[in-house]
Simulated scan of single mutants.
Amino acid sequence: MPRTFKGTPVINIQPFQNGTQTSFLTYSPPALHLLNNSTVGYLGGSLSTRVIPIIYTLVVTVGIPANMCLLVTKIRKVSSAILYCSLAVSDLFLLLSLFFKAHYHFHGNHWVLGETACRVVTACFYGNLRCSAMTLACISIERYLAVVYPFIYKSMPKRLCAAWVSLALWGGFGVAIIPELIIQQSYWLPQLNRTTCHDVLPLDHSSHMFLLYYHLILIVLFLMVPLVVIAVCFARFINKLTRSHSDQDHVNCSISCIFLADRSGMW
């Protein structure tokens, strides 16, 4: 099942806001009716209005200073600096989107910033999540080449390759977020008297059905594929380093810590 809940369009509705009846002809955003009572419980429950935004707030509080420190810290290897700075910028955009999502959840899953902001925050959240995962995969490939094929890695134009890879990743990011920027994301829920952002969509509509399958494809290409690449690279690290070092336990522990750090950043 998708993360987004399903709603059906409501026709000729005259919602009440703050005790004042508003004409449907001038009402925005469009209205949806929830089909599942569990969805109503989730949108009004403490999990989505307290637990999730508190976690987002903690992530933002720790993540923004950490990524800012990475951007201002001098990194010796220029090629690594390009990729790490690209990763830090992507994470910063992701953290900014989490800030607005936390605001949305703290307000009882009620979006008050308008449709344009909803589209931008949604695209920024999903787009930078995928961009961060792809960047981590590229960093893992660079480490793999440096460890397993050091002579080939030394002869490579590392700065130029890293720059082109970063440009390609951000170009893919720009293309991937287009559907999320052009499809309606916020809807009014008369049952709850609130406006949701991306949480409830008319999934029977052709455009939103396309968005659903589009997300599934991007999950495979930009999350599952990087996961496999990172896992394979670190497996080769362990295989290579354990043949070259006598202290295998120390090597395995170090590699495992790096792998877990990358995985936590990826998700």
Rank of each mutant, 00 (worst) to 15 (best):
P2F: 03
K6T: 08
G7C: 08
I11M: 12
N12C: 08
N12Y: 09
P15E: 02
P15Q: 02
F16H: 12
Y27W: 15
H33Q: 10
L35I: 11
S38N: 12
Y42M: 07
S46T: 07
S46V: 07
T49V: 05
I54V: 10
I55P: 01
L58S: 06
V59C: 10
V60E: 08
T61M: 14
I64A: 08
L71I: 04
T73Q: 10
K74C: 14
R76L: 11
K77R: 13
V78Q: 10
S80N: 07
S80A: 06
I82H: 02
Y84T: 06
C85G: 05
C85P: 01
C85T: 04
S86G: 15
A88L: 06
V89Y: 08
S90L: 09
D91K: 10
D91G: 07
L95G: 08
L96Y: 13
L96P: 02
L98S: 13
F99L: 09
F99S: 07
F100E: 11
A102G: 03
L113Y: 12
E115H: 00
A117D: 03
C118L: 01
C118E: 01
C118R: 01
A123F: 01
A123G: 06
A123Q: 03
F125G: 07
G127N: 01
R130E: 05
R130I: 05
C131P: 02
C131D: 11
A133E: 11
T135D: 03
T135G: 07
L136E: 02
L136A: 12
C138Y: 08
C138N: 12
I139Q: 08
I141C: 15
I141V: 15
E142M: 15
R143N: 12
Y144Q: 08
V147T: 14
F151D: 10
Y153K: 10
K154E: 13
P157A: 02
K158F: 04
R159A: 08
R159K: 14
R159L: 06
L160M: 13
A162L: 00
W164T: 09
S166Y: 02
L167E: 06
A168F: 13
F173D: 01
V175R: 06
V175P: 03
A176G: 04
I177C: 00
I177K: 00
I177Q: 01
I178A: 03
I182C: 06
W188C: 02
W188Q: 03
L189W: 03
Q191E: 15
N193F: 15
R194L: 14
H198N: 14
V200E: 12
L201C: 06
P202Q: 04
H205Q: 09
S206V: 11
S207Y: 04
L211H: 00
L212M: 13
L216I: 10
I217K: 07
I217H: 06
L218Y: 08
L221N: 02
L223W: 14
L223K: 07
M224S: 06
V225S: 05
V225G: 04
P226K: 06
A231G: 04
R236H: 13
I238M: 14
N239Q: 11
N239D: 10
K240A: 04
L241I: 09
H245I: 04
D249G: 12
V251P: 01
N252R: 15
C253P: 00
C253R: 01
S254V: 04
I255L: 04
S256W: 09
C257R: 14
F259Y: 10
A261M: 12
D262Q: 13
D262K: 15
S264L: 14
S264I: 09
